[in-house]
């Protein structure tokens, strides 16, 4: 937390938590919406409060400002967040995922509000979101942290390979936080697609949405290699070049996982019904479509009892 230590203006705000009593009985799987702890995430800094300038030398840990060598007039700079941090500069339009970008280009000009988010997962199921709001002055490549907010995250669902989906409640909205090991592709509640290229995706679901609200996302995660050999996949599937994974131990592979989080409400529901699902998005063993010429007996883990013919 080098950046924090250097700043005299840093205030650490603990997120407020509130457990709602009297939550309805919940089935297995996702918690009920009202049982998800509520947290306060401050609004981004407002440009009208921006200082005129920030002298060079001020920094936030894990974030750097690069002059953009590709620009002839040097009027653009690139803000790069490292170590899985996500960064946003300027205002975030309503409805847009507030995180998901590891770098962004900005026009060099005045001082701009900036937010850096970092998902800190101490172990699967135990995580917090560290949000640093700061001022960015690209002219001096300086960043002045203003407030750091730590948001404890609750586990919404556990998936395969210890993958955990986290969240917290913000009024009538559920904020969903998904760790990203590679890129995450997602469809937001408005039906728009997007990609996350930093360490997590944070996106909100409106519990008051009349027709329900849903996020569907997919990404690759590290998992143990399956022992069985693969069968060829049906050729009708689009052949897409798989992104090159980071170097992995020989006994591990990257396998696609699909996450869906939704809230919906029927007339009888006292509160929106929360659903969180995590599952593999592709077959590891390649057994997909059945074929009439394929001997199903090969798949049996338990021997089939032969049919007894009646006399």
């Amino acid at each position: 937390m080098r950046g924090l230590a250097k700043s005299s203006c840093v205030a650490i705000a603990a997120a407020s938590l509130a457990l709602v009593a009297g939550t309805p009985a919940e089935a297995a799987g996702a918690p009920s919406f009202s049982s998800v702890p509520e947290a306060r995430v401050p609004e981004m800094l407002h440009p009208k409060d921006a200082p005129d300038a920030i002298p060079s030398g001020e920094r936030v840990e894990g974030v750097r400002v690069d002059e953009n060598a590709m620009r002839v007039q040097q009027s653009f700079a690139t803000v790069v967040a490292e170590g899985g941090r996500c960064v946003a500069v300027g205002a975030i339009p309503p409805g847009v995922a507030p995180s998901g970008v590891a770098q962004t280009s900005i026009r060099v000009g005045g001082v701009l509000p900036m937010r850096v988010e970092h998902l800190v997962e101490r172990k699967p199921g135990e995580a917090e979101l560290v949000i640093v709001d700061a001022w960015l002055d690209a002219r001096t490549s300086s960043i002045r942290p203003v407030v750091t907010t730590r948001v404890p995250l609750t586990t919404l669902a556990k998936g395969p390979a210890k993958y955990v989906v986290y969240g917290f409640r913000k009024g009538s909205e559920l904020q969903v936080v998904m760790p990203s090991q590679e890129r995450i592709g997602y469809v937001d509640p408005r039906g728009q697609i997007g990609f996350t290229q930093c360490g997590h995706l944070r996106i909100g679901l409106d519990g008051a949405a009349k027709n329900g609200a849903m996020i569907v996302a997919a990404g690759r995660i590290r998992t143990n290699r399956a022992p069985s050999p693969s069968r060829p996949a049906p050729s009708f599937h689009p052949q897409v070049v798989t992104p090159q994974s980071q170097a992995l131990p020989p006994d591990m592979v990257m396998r696609a996982v699909q996450v869906s989080v939704s809230m919906s409400r029927t007339k009888r529901d006292r509160e929106p019904l929360l659903s969180v699902s995590v599952g593999w998005a592709e077959d590891d063993d390649g057994v997909t479509a059945s074929s009439s010429t394929h001997d199903m007996a090969e798949d049996f883990e338990v021997p089939i009892a032969e049919p007894a013919e009646e006399q």
């Binding site: 599937h237 696609a256 592709e282």
Partner: peptide, 17 residues
């Protein structure tokens, strides 16, 4: 509401049928 297939977006070569 038919949504885009996110599996295609992340290059899933063997999507579950």
């Amino acid at each position: 509401n038919v949504k885009p297939d996110v599996r295609q977006m992340v290059g899933v070569a063997r999507p579950r049928p």
